[in-house]
Design a protein around this nucleic acid. Sequence first.
DNA 1: GGCGGATGTGGTATCGATACCATACCAACC
DNA 2: GGTTGGTATGGTATCGATACCACATCCGCC
Lengths: 341, 341
Amino acid sequence: MAKKRATTIHDVARRAGVAPITVSRVINNSSYISAETRARVEAAIEELHYVPNGLSRSLRSKKTNTIALLVSDITNPFWPAVTRGVEDASSERAVNVVLCNTDENPEKLENYVNVLLQRQMDGFLLVPIQGDAEVRTIQRQQVPIVVVDRLLPEVDVVRSDSESGAYELTRYLLELGHREIAMLCGPFEIITTQQRLAGFRRAMQEAGFVPNENLIFFGQYRPEGGYAMTMDVLKSARPTALFAVNNFIAAGVLSALDELGLRVPEDISLVAFDDLPIFPRSFLTVAAQRPYELGWRAASLLLDIIDGSTKPATRDTVLPVDLLVRDSCLPIVPAEGKLTT
Amino acid sequence: MAKKRATTIHDVARRAGVAPITVSRVINNSSYISAETRARVEAAIEELHYVPNGLSRSLRSKKTNTIALLVSDITNPFWPAVTRGVEDASSERAVNVVLCNTDENPEKLENYVNVLLQRQMDGFLLVPIQGDAEVRTIQRQQVPIVVVDRLLPEVDVVRSDSESGAYELTRYLLELGHREIAMLCGPFEIITTQQRLAGFRRAMQEAGFVPNENLIFFGQYRPEGGYAMTMDVLKSARPTALFAVNNFIAAGVLSALDELGLRVPEDISLVAFDDLPIFPRSFLTVAAQRPYELGWRAASLLLDIIDGSTKPATRDTVLPVDLLVRDSCLPIVPAEGKLTT
DNA sequence: GGCGGATGTGGTATCGATACCATACCAACC
DNA sequence: GGTTGGTATGGTATCGATACCACATCCGCC
């Protein structure tokens, strides 16, 4: 559309009868400006509906005041909560956040990283997928980065204590007398799944039990994954409890159980990681991460690195996970209890 | 750290023994380049890990090849689906998408619009909140814009046929014999809620019934809203069917009914707008919008306007809504049927 | 009376790329 | 043999802002 030349700082300067640099000072509140000049400039800005050109600004100042946040699955409410933490920490420091959803797709991630590097992001918060290629690319360009949620070597990481969370949940089930516990995991390659599985194994072993490998399933970190795994397990076995390693898997589990006419906890017990805010009053016993805090901490660290008050390093910041005991598990009474493998 | 000067097009040019403009041509695949020169330049790019500066590029070319997508609630899976449509349509045309979540918060929206205008977005896709201030701001800057999901005058709009969807759902309930239908709406100010309510009213009136105003509730477009409204309705009345005007409200309804020990559809019927992918096999009868198509169409229109092949106007593109009859409603048998008000 | 610092404003170069114009070669063709 | 047009490359100005350096007042104070 007949896009005429946009109004620039020169137009404003001319109208206010000052030099462009003076307009710049008014906008940025830098240096001294007499009240009278400031008023004239502000009036001109107002009258011309002047919008500063951020590209030019950033090109010259070498700062975009923008960080990128690359999350793995925006439909999982865990990530919007993390995002909120990131945004709040950032806006306190006048930094903007560009949100990108990689869908656990390495190509999308690579593509976003390339584009965002060109756009001169001041820093990156990212959830790695399959390897560390993108993280290394960013590091090579000397752009600050903090990895979120998933442990990776040789880079700053902020994550939750998946291992302990799974350990606690398993201990809780063991104390209720459960022995046949089915683990419904995410993709094997994802480190959080491995860590949660490790926590489960540790709890079992410490209690003197050998986990039943036939009850360990892998699937997607999605409701369909939980649904499919539940159907799979129950086709061939009858565990007394199910352990969903994330909230989306738990949602699928609930759907499947509902379809099978099995009630929680009367017919089967269930524990999971994370709440699903879509159920306003969840009855699930879960190990809840602190997504908002996770985002906040990761962003704060990144911003500290960007402004130079902290040096990049290979810190591994691990946040605690909260065990929330609710009503999705029942104790196994000895009479009904099965013998351990 | 110690952020040395980044490598520029000049560095690449020097290394390849050509002029900067030639490097530019290789990158952009514009003009003629001999195979030999191209190879030398590409080698230099590779060796120096050169990343072009997008700010500079965009400043000069006056194009960022980026559009902004401002959605109202990213936690509602409807929006990620729209986003996917937008991204697919955009990436076909080599345009990037900046995703922002306004949380139905007008201040956030205003803030994002200001920042993104400075960043010289090529266009905007936006879901308006309370009024049209931001839309007008964008139009004043002569930046192309398409409004998504919510009707607004004097601007291009792409949306679903909320009115008809609600009409169809209501007709379906009426045919099953339901007369006491509780409408669980979103915020009154939001046009989609008004339209769905209007569709409901039209169906009732055409069938010769007067809607019971005591069964019309307003709340948030969130699970908590649905939960609260359900509790409210059932405190004082006993409708035979509930109509949740969006999927999140439906989720809250299900939670509340579960807590009250009421089963769907045996104890009460339920219809809603949109599916919730978190339930892999939904049993809900819904009027399903086509979010992916919505995003696709809106983005395509915007991109057409940006590249000049279509002129901005005040089109109102309305997509159909699909009635998916499943198992969340039972007919009212005459004996049990209540008399109409 | 001169000096230092606070106050207020401007000029010019520059950020890193591309637009635009120019040049030069070579082959084909009438 | 000169014209035409495709092929291939370069020089310079410029996008819109800020960095950096300069300069001019004015005030207070030793």
